[in-house]
Design a protein around this nucleic acid. Structure first.
Lengths: 348, 348
DNA sequence: CTGAAAGCGCTTACAG
DNA sequence: CTGAAAGCGCTTACAG
């Protein structure tokens, strides 16, 4: 054993050769089959032998070669994560949730960004499949967009996270309609009755969803929206700023609250209100959507906003993919996961 | 061949069995050795045979098993990317650059976030090593912080990207001093002479670096800083806002330009100036640092700022790791990569 | 020009 | 209780 522990390892390309189960077996004076059984904890064997092998393995800093195991077991304990939003704000928490859920079960995550060019994206998917990923998670920055790569023919399980998938696939999205209800219910609970909705471009699926939650929550309370239709613009601070000015200019009177389609719009709107001497939340309460900390916390006053729980969404996607990989049945369909309201000072 | 192409593949766990080089060989009526040689493009062989094998492989959608190859070649074409900044703004472009540089060479990237808890982080590193990564890139959100895991004993090459490494390691950082010079030179070229520096906490390494660039550029032009010492606060809009008010209140007169330590500070400062009726860039020109689009482009007026070229930094780190993996010598040391100035309207 | 054999590092029935 | 053998899918000398 001592001899084994300090024998000089043969050089390999300038680096120390890895120590294999062969080395462990030799130093423990057992066969590699026995060494394997001892280390895996499987089967019955003399306790003394098992302990001895384990000690030797430790002394040699033996690290089992997962590649060899994967080849044998036809399971790599590796998944692929595709995203078309490397810079973005949405995929990041989703990724973190996926990673967190899987890394605990010994599964590692290949990250791969598929951008506009679908040929490049497809070749990345091919690379993942060659590396024998056990499954793939497709994630994106828009609920209503597909990735540019075709995953329908892939022969491993696929789960979609914050991303549109084909008919009959398994996916997770945030329940933006219900999230919008939370926001509006909060405003109403504070006594606000003249509530406007300033939001993003109507061709984003989330826009009508959030607008529906807004309208439904008001309707349940017997209220009508402050403007007949939601005020639609782009997702920018500039639009929020402009929307505020439009609202203030209306001779028909002002709203006492605004539910914004995202935090940037809310930020711009609050800035404009402040510049015009309108108190937030005193005169007009504001709620945003996204809980993008860097905006929500920096707004003056800090912004109450809807958080989509994207990390949780990622966790669900990861665990569900694991179910599929391990053969547990999962019914197809898209699950909408709940949002939560994060209360800060902008709504009183 | 036809028979092979449409034979039903044996089921494997409910899914289609993967087609192996065995299947290709059988359908092409050659040995697997020949099939391998045909597909790899290596060695001399009858052109007709090679073509036939290739066609069969295509017809069968043969996808070589990279795991088997990795086991044999002792090279996984996989690297590990560690970061302690899953949510953050810095690691993202770095990651994208790494990925981009490596994916083209057939190398896939395991993403792994190591947070506070170093025990968990270490176990992630172990998982990567068991999966036989060819090398590791450590990246972070601060140039002057180490990751919580110890990589000095790891037996694969390691490169540090926007992250502090141990003595004698190989790393890449941005040249913030030179970046600051760019900013100040621009302001001086526009005729500004009374230039202040409002920056972040002095215990961030980048703060003295940027301050040094600021001071050096001024000194070269025979100018002195508007305030004797840089104005130090935190990295927030709120601090920028407060700093503006302090500058305006000074009876000794106003600066005609401010170089800010980051874009958030610049944003807050510009907001405050605008509120007080000071024209940007007319009365006071402003330059930021980071080029965080979501701030820099949304500022009114849009912000001129220093971009650290982080994607490029990631690309360098990736390619350098590849050099090490493939045995090309790389001298140790930290390389500071150039920044670039992105000109928008805030500096005229 | 083509194929049989050995082997990468491991696990798993099966025999002794 | 322990070990010999087969095999995961591939590549690479080497022999024919």
């Amino acid at each position: 054993m001592d001899e084994a522990a300090d024998r000089t390892l043969p050089a390999r390309n300038g680096r120390a050769a890895r120590v294999t189960i062969h080395d462990v077996a030799r130093a423990s004076e057992v066969s590699i089959a026995t060494a394997s059984k001892a280390l895996s904890g499987q089967g019955r064997m003399a306790v003394a032998t098992r302990e001895r092998v384990k000690e030797v393995a430790k002394a040699l800093s033996f690290r089992p070669n997962a590649i060899a195991r994967a080849l044998l077991k036809q399971r790599s304990f590796t998944i692929g994560l595709l995203t078309d939003d490397t810079y973005g704000r949405f995929t990041l928490p989703v990724m973190a949730g996926i990673s967190e859920a899987l890394v605990d079960r010994g599964v590692s995550v290949f990250l791969c960004s598929v951008e506009r060019d679908s040929a490049v994206g497809q070749s990345h998917v091919d690379a993942m499949l060659e590396k024998q990923v056990d499954g793939i998670i497709a994630s994106g920055k828009r609920l209503d967009r597909r990735l540019s790569v075709d995953l329908s023919v892939v022969d491993v399980p696929v789960v979609y996270a914050y991303c549109e998938g084909p008919e009959g696939s398994i996916g997770f999205v945030s329940d933006d309609r219900a999230g919008a209800c939370l926001a509006v219910e909060r405003l109403m609970a504070l006594g606000r009755r003249r509530i406007a909705h300033v939001t993003g471009p109507a061709d984003f699926a989330v826009v009508p969803q959030r607008a529906r939650g807004f309208a439904e929550a008001l309707a349940r309370a017997g209220l009508r929206p402050f403007t007949e239709h939601p005020m639609v613009g782009d997702w920018s601070e500039a639009w929020g700023f402009a929307a505020a000015e439009r609202l203030l200019a209306d001779p028909a009177g002002r709203p006492d609250a605004v539910f914004c389609g995202n935090d940037q719009i809310a930020r711009g709107l609050i800035d404009a209100l402040t510049l015009r001497g309108v108190a937030v939340p005193g005169d007009i309460a504001v709620v945003g959507f996204d809980n993008w900390e860097i905006f929500a916390a920096a707004t003056r006053p800090p912004l109450t906003t809807v958080d989509m729980n994207l990390k949780d969404l990622g966790r669900h996607a990861g665990l569900t993919l694991l179910d599929l990989v391990e053969g547990r049945p999962v019914p197809p369909g898209v699950r909408a996961l709940p949002c939560r309201l994060v209360v800060r000072r902008s709504c009183g």
